[in-house]
Design a protein around this nucleic acid. Structure first.
Length: 353
DNA sequence: AAGCGGGTCAACCGCATACCC
DNA sequence: CGGGTATGCGGTTGACCCGCT
């Protein structure tokens, strides 16, 4: 037996909202709030809409102070940073961007940011591949130079040492080198996350570090009160959040790497006793892939990677340990409606006592 | 001018969780 | 405490727009 439908689908209008519907919903909510019951609301005001649909329309479009489009570079940086830290928790990310909705951020990420970053990733990989090929060519050149010199010892001196023996720029089969030495371009979240980690928070076009310290740190307020931390999960969350907080409040200029390293170090204290088994920070970062449920990306080291519990611990597994944490405090300055579930997150914003 | 394809974004769907009785 | 219902969330879909051919 399936779940009972939330509304009578036959008598419910779907699709785009008309201005009249918008006006009706907006006027009612602004005057009365939602009454704490979205399901009953459309019937109350004579809208042939599903309660869920009304809620979504209000949250994503009608509520005050909503911004649409035109994401600033700063906002992009925040989205990227948070995506690296917490994954696709759009509502939490939205909590850090006043006036932005989770839907907007999700759309922006999927349609633009992801592509933008993938493009950047390809460029960097190409540059890396070219640099690598160049280095190999130089090594070959040096090797042949040595051979030649040893050969010349048996030849007439000076007969072959005029001009270069091969062009400075050797034709380089970049794709082959790339295929052999680098993992293929990954089109998925795993690749992006790794790329973001590699960038270390350097997301903007001018390659400046996002200055979370000056722009957003004050917005990052984690309402953690040691007095109310009682359960292991609370403690867990407090650990992870304080790590995040410290990483943004120190002079790390919002370094994503720092955040992640701190997080990983903190994860070592998790009750599941995640054994990272890495010897250096870079390896720790690579190992973090496991937390995101992705495979080890560094194919070249795959053979030597020691099996650890970390590898089987997906991000979901880990996040399930910390998903009790409240969303980050928003500095949303809208006008909360009484009983308004649109501001349901405000329940998280209970004053710290 | 028409057709096509890609991009964008609003809206829907289904699942997980919270809440209430 | 358990079951039913409401809410919140993230993934996905589809309509619309715009540029290109």
């Amino acid at each position: 037996m399936g779940r009972a439908p939330c509304c009578d689908k036959a008598n419910v209008k779907k699709g785009p909202w008309s201005p009249e519907e918008d006006a009706t919903l907006k006027a009612y909510i602004e005057q009365n709030g939602t009454g704490g019951n979205w399901i009953a609301l459309p019937q109350k005001i004579g809208l042939k809409r599903c309660g869920k649909s009304c809620r979504l329309r209000w949250l994503n479009y009608l509520r005050p102070n909503i911004k649409h489009g035109g994401f600033s570079e700063e906002e992009e940086n925040i989205i990227c940073s948070l995506y690296v830290s917490i994954g696709s928790r759009w509502s939490i990310i939205a909590g850090q961007l006043p006036g932005r909705t989770d839907n907007d951020i999700k759309n922006y990420w999927n349609t633009r940011l992801k592509k933008k970053l993938l493009g950047k990733q390809r460029k960097e990989e190409q540059a890396q591949a070219q640099a690598h090929a160049h280095a190999q060519a130089q090594a070959r050149r040096a090797k042949q130079e040595m051979k030649r010199e040893s050969y010349e010892n048996f030849m007439v001196p000076g007969a072959m040492n005029q001009g270069p023996y091969w062009p400075v720029e050797l034709p380089v089969a970049v794709p082959i080198v790339c295929a052999a030495q680098y993992p293929p371009p990954l089109e998925d979240q795993a690749a992006l996350t790794n790329f973001l980690i590699k960038l270390g928070g350097r997301f903007s076009d001018n390659h400046q570090q996002p200055n979370l310290t000056t722009t957003t740190t004050t917005d990052f307020q984690y309402p953690i009160d040691n007095h109310i931390i009682s359960s292991p999960q609370d403690q867990l969350y407090a650990n992870s959040m304080s790590m995040l907080t410290s990483s943004t409040t120190t002079n790390s200029v919002g370094s994503t790497c720092t955040q992640l390293t701190n997080m990983v170090q903190g994860l070592e204290n998790f009750p599941c006793e995640v054994e990272l088994g890495y010897n250096n920070p870079q390896q720790q970062l690579n190992g973090l892939d496991g937390f995101y449920g992705m495979e080890m990306v560094n194919a070249s080291t795959a053979g030597t990677t020691t099996t650890s519990s970390c590898e089987s611990a997906s991000w979901g597994d880990i996040s399930s340990l910390v998903n009790v944490y409240p969303p980050l405090v928003s500095d949303y300055e809208g006008t909360p409606q009484p009983q308004d579930s649109a501001f349901g997150d405000l329940s998280y914003f209970r004053p710290i006592q």
